[in-house]
Amino acid sequence: CHSECLGNCSQPDDPTKCVACRNFYLDGRCVETCPPPYYHFQDWRCVNFSFCQDLHHKCKNSRRQGCHQYVIHNNKCIPECPSGYTMNSSNLLCTPCLGPCPKVCHLLEGEKTIDSVTSAQELRGCTVINGSLIINIRGGNNLAAELEANLGLIEEISGYLKIRRSYALVSLSFFRKLRLIRGETLEIGNYSFYALDNQNLRQLWDWSKHNLTITQGKLFFHYNPKLCLSEIHKMEEVSGTKGRQERNDIALKTNGDQASCENELLKFSYIRTSFDKILLRWEPYWPPDFRDLLGFMLFYKEAPYQNVTEFDGQDACGSNSWTVVDIDPPLRSNDPKSQNHPGWLMRGLKPWTQYAIFVKTLVTFSDERRTYGAKSDIIYVQTDATNPSVPLDPISVSNSSSQIILKWKPPSDPNGNITHYLVFWERQAEDSELFELDYCLKGLKLPSRTWSPPFESEDSQKHNQSEYEDSAGECCSCPKTDSQILKELEESSFRKTFEDYLHNVVFVPRKT
């Protein structure tokens, strides 16, 4: 048989008469490798580009789960590009990614509803959504962080984005990388972005840091009482949809009607710091009717980097990364020049730590249904340095008659930039024990000054392991946590139920 035959053949030295091919099969003959313009397919066939392209389009058009959109890589027609490569849609070739590779997620039936953290986790790592997304989240724990972890990498949506009755959302900033909504599939009414009845939605994105392009379709905003109209108009300008909307697409009466839409800028007039305090004062603000001013709200939190936005980490279910302080308005003076500047002394802060701070007014709604208010920009203030805590785990070892090696770990709280350490030492008198000992005694162990690591005695271990207080009263049991108490109650309830079950099964009433 021919060298490319495997198993047997019907005619000697003829690659077209093989029972099976050793390498690849091409047009009725066995070959060692697939010549151009053919590609290896499933490690035994040679196919042309049209064959591989037909497989790709067949799966793409069917949208069946589990099928493969075949691509070409290293002269092979394979189910998908290997790690580190992405497909070129024009020629199906796998090309190296520039940075992290995109991950295209194809949605069944063309859309997916995100109504819980669990459903959001199914899209973790996706960068391109081939379909439409509907966000409908009523509640949950730590929602802002969970949504950002699972949806934060999405850069492109081919269909539309719909935010509907998501009472738990305060902001859409968890879509931190969303840059493009194509609108290839539109919501009824030709809408590519749809926001309806979101009672706590206050911000779409921080438009000073976020760009969003909507290729096709219109915007729809109705019944978002805490979303200011200025935020919607800003989205029109940034996304390129200005002029597409009709009169009733953006409701003037049901958007922002319960919001404090600040239209003035508060400026800080005085800032002073110490290692654990920050004193702030800002310019006074009074609405047209000074009785509408209820006070100020001061927001602050630790910020290692200057990239904080107002609604980071917030949701309507209680999660809030900001510390909020309510401040009463100052006494009002008739003389504008003698107006008191409101302020606040922030206490209990960490030394040498940068804080993000902003302040906003708290006002009631005027009778004319106009909203007044003022808010400052987010500023960054760093507390002063102070003395560091003591170095940890000092170790001293003498390696000769004239040297001592000293080692330690950095302090747990540096409280500033540590530039150097101060080492103090003092000579001590020799131990009298060394002169009084009889060095001729056998088995004498000389006193040693070398360091030995501390260890816990058996008594201390027994005390720590004991669940009861000892007789001397030195140790006591740790208080039980809520989960331990709940577990004990469940076990007790189970024992009672099981005992009742045994009584009912074992003891049967005697027939009379």
Rank of each mutant, 00 (worst) to 15 (best):
C261T: 05
S366R: 12
Y223P: 00
D377F: 03
L252A: 10
Q199S: 05
A385R: 12
L161E: 00
L298D: 00
Y191T: 10
P288F: 13
N340M: 03
R179A: 10
C317I: 14
T215Q: 10
L265R: 14
S260H: 05
R176N: 05
V359G: 01
L345M: 06
G110V: 04
L123W: 07
I327G: 01
D393T: 11
L133W: 00
V359E: 00
K226W: 15
I395G: 10
I357R: 00
S171H: 15
F275S: 14
L293Q: 10
G240Q: 15
R347A: 08
N340S: 08
W286T: 09
K350N: 04
T383W: 00
I214V: 14
E262S: 09
D206G: 05
G373D: 06
G343I: 15
F358V: 07
H210V: 09
T118L: 04
L180V: 10
M346A: 05
K242P: 06
P391H: 02
L279S: 07
S119I: 14
D289K: 03
L107K: 03
L147C: 03
L161Q: 00
N198S: 04
E146L: 04
R247S: 10
R281F: 15
N141E: 14
C105A: 00
L345C: 05
R247M: 09
Q354T: 05
P351S: 08
Q199F: 12
F193L: 11
W207T: 10
N150V: 03
W207A: 05
T273C: 14
Q382A: 15
S389M: 05
S402W: 06
L266P: 00
K409T: 11
F221G: 03
E246Q: 15
H210L: 12
E184S: 14
W344K: 11
L133F: 04
W344C: 04
A149F: 14
S396W: 08
T185L: 09
A385P: 13
F311L: 07
V128S: 13
S400E: 15
R347N: 08
T127N: 06
I135Y: 02
T361H: 09
L147M: 13
N340P: 07
T254D: 03
Y380I: 02
F220V: 05
P342T: 06
A374P: 15
S396K: 10
L266S: 01
L227M: 11
T254I: 15
S171W: 02
S116K: 14
T364L: 01
S119R: 04
V363N: 11
Y194T: 11
P391A: 07
C228H: 12
R332Q: 10
Y372P: 11
N334T: 14
D384S: 07
N320M: 07
T364A: 15
K409W: 13
L252D: 05
W352H: 13
P330F: 12
N190A: 14
E146M: 06
I271Y: 06
T241K: 12
T254K: 11
V359Q: 00
L219V: 06
V397R: 09
Y194I: 10
S376T: 10
S333L: 05
F268N: 00
A251H: 04
N334W: 06
P284R: 08
S173T: 08
I134L: 13
T273I: 08
Y300V: 07
K226I: 07
I135M: 06
R244F: 05
R165M: 08
V325L: 12
K337G: 08
Q245H: 04
R369L: 12
R370K: 10
L153W: 14
N190W: 01
K253L: 11
I163M: 11
K103L: 09
Y167N: 14
D377A: 10
T371S: 10
F174L: 09
G348K: 01
N248V: 09
T113K: 12
T383Q: 00
L204N: 03
S208Y: 08
D312K: 14
E156P: 00
N255W: 04
I271M: 08
K277Q: 15
T127Q: 09
F221V: 11
M346Y: 01
I163P: 00
L406P: 00
T118G: 15
K301V: 05
E368P: 02
L331P: 03
P287V: 10
Q382N: 13
W207C: 03
C105T: 00
D289W: 02
D249P: 12
E146V: 04
I378P: 02
K162I: 04
L293K: 06
D206C: 10
L161W: 00
Q258P: 10
T309Q: 12
W352D: 15
S171R: 08
S116L: 04
L180H: 09
L108A: 13
S401F: 07
S171F: 07
E187H: 09
L180T: 10
S230Y: 01
W344F: 04
L151N: 00
G373F: 03
P284M: 13
L153V: 13
F296K: 00
W286G: 11
C261I: 04
C126V: 01
M235R: 00
Q199L: 11
Y300E: 00
